[in-house]
Amino acid sequence: MPGFFKIGNNKIEFRKEAVSPEIQTENWSKVEAAIQKEKSRIVWLRPMLVAASFLLVAATSVWLFLKHENQNVYLTEVKTVSGEIKRITLPDGSTVVLNANSVLKVPKVWRDNGKRNVWIEGEAYFTVAKKKVSADIFIVHTKDVDIEVLGTKFNVNTRNDQSTVALEEGKVQLAVKDIAPSKAGKKELPVVMKPGEVAVVNKNDVVKLDADSTINMYSGWAHNEFHFNYTSMPEVARLIQDTYGYGVVISDSTLWRVKISGEFRAGNIEDMAKVLEVILKKKITIKDKTLVIGQ
């Protein structure tokens, strides 16, 4: 019998509709089927358990070895160090601008038809060539997300334990990785991004941002452009470290709390120092791979 509560003189309770017995019976038969399967598997496995685990270890080692070999054989790696930016043209005519401290992996052989897979760690700006055949999709793999490209310009950044995808032109589709398969899969929807959108994907959650006017902030580095929008000094320092490989020292520690906004071009560290001198109104010197911002 369900409980009740009172409001005024009114007794209020909940009516529980009976679930039809067929639903219960059917549900049980599915449970039973799964249980029986599990039972028989256990019975079969038990005597084999020790042998199986040995086999598993052996197989895993072989697989890991082969996987390692495969990667070396089939993938070309392009790496950049601090302060280095590389421009790469792929066999299909697509271009990649690889930012500092990043790795791009591309298959050595591109099949004429089929998926074009590339792997990125760090940051890169992609201009993907359009293909006539729809099967020739271009997929950028990061540790968090697979970006399926449908002819487009976009920036990918996998730094800071997350992947940020900023879409300038065209259309991309995101498939988030690292989710345990479950019943929820039924309702899975791939995420399609529109130009001007920025998506941040991390281990625990997915955040979608609409960036519109600030979209250039994400890919500006590829054109030697810098777009600051209330950007904090620690962020600026990280950007300088990533882009030019120069550390930043600030004599006046209160300056760390300053935020800067504005857009400019800086092709090298000297340009950057000149711009910052004007913005911050401080004397800046460069020595030993370090930018020293004076009093």
Binding site: N9, N10, K11, I12, E13, F14, R15, K16, E17, V176, I179, A180, S182, A184, G185, K187, E188, L189, V191, A199, D205, V206, K208
Partner: peptide, 28 residues
Amino acid sequence: SLKLRELKIKMSIEPDICFSIEEIIVEK
């Protein structure tokens, strides 16, 4: 995990119960 997949649909992690009018009995 649904929330993770359906980025566009804002799903609260708290389950949200919905009572229907047929379920509620007011004695008087």
